[in-house]
Design a protein around this nucleic acid. Sequence first.
DNA 1: TCTCGACCGAGAGCACTGCTCTCCAATGTA
DNA 2: TACATTGGAGAGCAGTGCTCTCGGTCGAGA
Lengths: 238, 238
Amino acid sequence: MEKRTAASIRARVRAEMIDEIKRAARRQLATEGANLSLRAIARELGVASSALYRYFASRDDLLTALIIDAYNAIGEAGERAEAAVTERLDLNRRWVAVANAWRGWALAHPAEYALIHGSPVPGYAAPVDTVAPASRRFLVVATIIRDGRRAGVLAPAATPPERPLIPAPLRVELDAIAAALDVEVEAGLTARALIAVTELFGALNFELFGQLNNTIDDRRAWFDLQVRMMADLIGLPH
Amino acid sequence: MEKRTAASIRARVRAEMIDEIKRAARRQLATEGANLSLRAIARELGVASSALYRYFASRDDLLTALIIDAYNAIGEAGERAEAAVTERLDLNRRWVAVANAWRGWALAHPAEYALIHGSPVPGYAAPVDTVAPASRRFLVVATIIRDGRRAGVLAPAATPPERPLIPAPLRVELDAIAAALDVEVEAGLTARALIAVTELFGALNFELFGQLNNTIDDRRAWFDLQVRMMADLIGLPH
DNA sequence: TCTCGACCGAGAGCACTGCTCTCCAATGTA
DNA sequence: TACATTGGAGAGCAGTGCTCTCGGTCGAGA
């Protein structure tokens, strides 16, 4: 017991410091974007800038930590909203809940959203640690599709006919994605779900990166319409 | 005449220098991203860093110039590809041409693409000069819709029924957009066209910003499928 | 309980950045 | 040809990421 406790004292202090650094970094992020200043963070914490290097080997390392946190945060936001829908068979409601949760998180944390959905930091190669948190967003959508298929409301017959034919190599990849997400659906449905998600994040990018300034002011209604149209594209019953 | 010629000598030299600076900046952009270095550009041109300030008041000013150029370049790429389609009544072909041109330009100039579609540079407010070039991308799509409506192939009856109902305030805004683009179509069609474009740029963001690494390798086929599905969403006849 | 070693903070320093200011040479203009 | 506008050079300021060395502190194992 002593060993564990003793070790965890230092570890806990260290973890707290890491947390404080990340908090300050997130604050910086809001005003400075991806080119946040380590020295400014150190100043804010009342610490020499060199001290930060005891916790993060480089600025990129700190950014990586923030990126992983952001992926997990937006993923968790979607998961919680989806889990809160009690009518589990109302796939539409679950889809809308996820979409709105994503948008809500993005609007509440625009800088962190930009960190993961914006231009990659030049010369920065995303480490492998980021791929799992990054795919987390898609998992929750997969559960909706899976439940729908199992319940029969997303039966192959009920979904729209596969209109643009999918070439074989692409079909193989789409099948692999579905298998990795543990859903057994035809490639056409996988494609439509992916497209729906792509559209949503495209919409969020447009909204957050200022592409629809002076174009659409009622962003809430516009996003809502897109969410519903994408629900139709997937084939979610209403 | 002497006055004009004399003035234009200086002006021409100045324009050439500006061009050289922008060329070097674009080269920098490819490796360094948005945080390119003025001093590195100066070094590359064999010039003192302070000399650059005779041409651009600040780094942000230079970035603004690059942004405007990028908007115009991708816009023009779309326009040229669309204009090259001789079968003017084949709306589908025109749409595909535009989409592929956008993607081709993006793949050829990823850094410039990121400059206009990625996270906004922190603390950088896009000047008014950028809004016109930014909307240029949408103009070419508008012409396709307009021609389709005029030719009757995009007749209201032929387009899918307006399924998600559009709330009145949003409908007003969509009508305003259509009016600004000089197309006379119902709000539902405007919405679908906007969504199609949103999805395409969402797809390009995913592809260029690395979101579909380890997911889909056959990017060409995947983009193609998305383009065709969005053509269906708009209601372009095939 | 006590000593020792891991850990961590401080500070100086390097090479770099954007930007300003002053000085000066070149060059088109009248 | 003399002048005034233009643009380049260079020093300098405040800031950056990052490294290295030096000490102190405090939890660790004996």
